[in-house]
Computed example of a mutant assay.
Amino acid sequence: MEHAIECRHIERQSGTGFRLKRGQILRVIDPMGEQVADLMAFNAHDLDEVLSSGRSIDYANTIYLTTGHVLYSNRSTPMFTILEDQVGRHDFLLTPCSPETFQIIYGNYAPHPSCFMNLVENLTPFGIAPDRIPTTFNIFMNVRIAESGELTIGPPISKAGQYIELQAEMDLIVGVTACSAELSNNHSFKPIDIEIRGQGA
């Protein structure tokens, strides 16, 4: 594997946005362990094409996407292929936490950082409006499903230094956050690191 051509450190409860060329590899790293990273992507040449939870889960026939699985767009076009996954547990059911999340779920009406607002802030410069941001791929998030259908959010099982690598299958605009939700991160907020490898097509 060639050396990273770009590295970014995402501080706790913050985010970043960037371009990724087709063929480049994105490594998302949990440097301290038990920290979720929300990921969203758009076709760099057509912002109406966006990463799709429904398509990706449908075609993989599993909610636990991992090594070898493809993440599809709303137009059923491959956006990412998961090349390597050292953790094996991520969520693609739940939306990025928002100010309303903390009001409705936590009963917290005080100002609170959120993945949705961090994505909005970092994707707006690329022309992406808030209403374009759908369900994110919640890397390292540990969501368990009971037979009744009830969801339980457990601590991430990621350990310090573990990562997932995704290869871009088209030119992309990508947003990544270090998640701000207490339940998702075992009540401790930590940073996320990313590396971009390869020159792309």
Results as ranks from 00 to 15, higher is better:
residue 94 L to C: 08
residue 99 P to V: 05
residue 161 G to L: 13
residue 133 I to V: 03
residue 92 F to Q: 07
residue 120 V to R: 04
residue 156 P to Y: 08
residue 160 A to C: 07
residue 79 M to L: 10
residue 119 L to T: 01
residue 102 F to K: 05
residue 74 N to R: 01
residue 73 S to G: 09
residue 122 N to R: 01
residue 161 G to R: 11
residue 101 T to N: 04
residue 87 V to A: 02
residue 108 N to A: 05
residue 158 S to T: 15
residue 157 I to L: 12
residue 119 L to Y: 01
residue 72 Y to Q: 05
residue 172 L to N: 00
residue 139 I to W: 07
residue 111 P to G: 08
residue 166 L to Y: 02
residue 72 Y to H: 08
residue 91 D to K: 03
residue 111 P to Q: 10
residue 153 I to H: 05
residue 138 N to L: 03
residue 111 P to A: 13
residue 164 I to K: 07
residue 127 G to I: 02
residue 130 P to N: 05
residue 160 A to D: 07
residue 150 E to I: 06
residue 98 S to G: 05
residue 140 F to M: 11
residue 80 F to C: 01
residue 162 Q to W: 14
residue 166 L to K: 02
residue 141 M to D: 13
residue 156 P to M: 11
residue 167 Q to L: 02
residue 91 D to V: 03
residue 86 Q to G: 15
residue 83 L to M: 14
residue 140 F to T: 09
residue 139 I to T: 15
residue 101 T to D: 06
residue 129 A to E: 15
residue 144 R to H: 14
residue 111 P to V: 12
residue 109 Y to G: 11
residue 86 Q to V: 09
residue 72 Y to R: 03
residue 100 E to F: 11
residue 124 T to G: 02
residue 90 H to T: 10
residue 141 M to Y: 13
residue 101 T to R: 01
residue 108 N to G: 01
residue 166 L to C: 08
residue 105 I to P: 00
residue 146 A to F: 13
residue 117 M to S: 14
residue 87 V to D: 07
residue 113 P to D: 15
residue 110 A to C: 06
residue 100 E to Q: 14
residue 133 I to K: 00
residue 150 E to H: 09
residue 163 Y to P: 08
residue 83 L to Q: 13
residue 164 I to M: 12
residue 79 M to F: 12
residue 127 G to T: 03
residue 96 P to K: 02
residue 97 C to Q: 04
residue 111 P to T: 11
residue 81 T to C: 01
residue 81 T to E: 10
residue 104 I to K: 09
residue 140 F to H: 10
residue 89 R to F: 13
residue 169 E to K: 08
residue 162 Q to T: 15
residue 114 S to I: 02
residue 167 Q to G: 02
residue 170 M to Q: 12
residue 120 V to I: 14
residue 160 A to S: 14
residue 104 I to D: 12
residue 140 F to E: 11
residue 70 V to D: 01
residue 105 I to A: 05
residue 109 Y to Q: 14
residue 138 N to G: 01
residue 123 L to Q: 02
residue 129 A to I: 08
residue 138 N to I: 04
residue 132 R to Y: 02
residue 170 M to C: 06
residue 165 E to A: 12
residue 122 N to G: 00
residue 152 T to Q: 13
residue 104 I to W: 05
residue 172 L to T: 00
residue 131 D to K: 09
residue 140 F to L: 08
residue 104 I to N: 07
residue 134 P to M: 04
residue 121 E to Y: 08
residue 123 L to T: 03
residue 78 P to V: 05
residue 75 R to N: 08
residue 146 A to N: 15
residue 79 M to Y: 03
residue 101 T to C: 10
residue 136 T to C: 13
residue 165 E to P: 09
residue 146 A to I: 06
residue 147 E to V: 11
residue 90 H to L: 09
residue 108 N to H: 13
residue 92 F to C: 12
residue 142 N to L: 07
residue 149 G to P: 06
residue 76 S to T: 11
residue 103 Q to C: 10
residue 76 S to F: 09
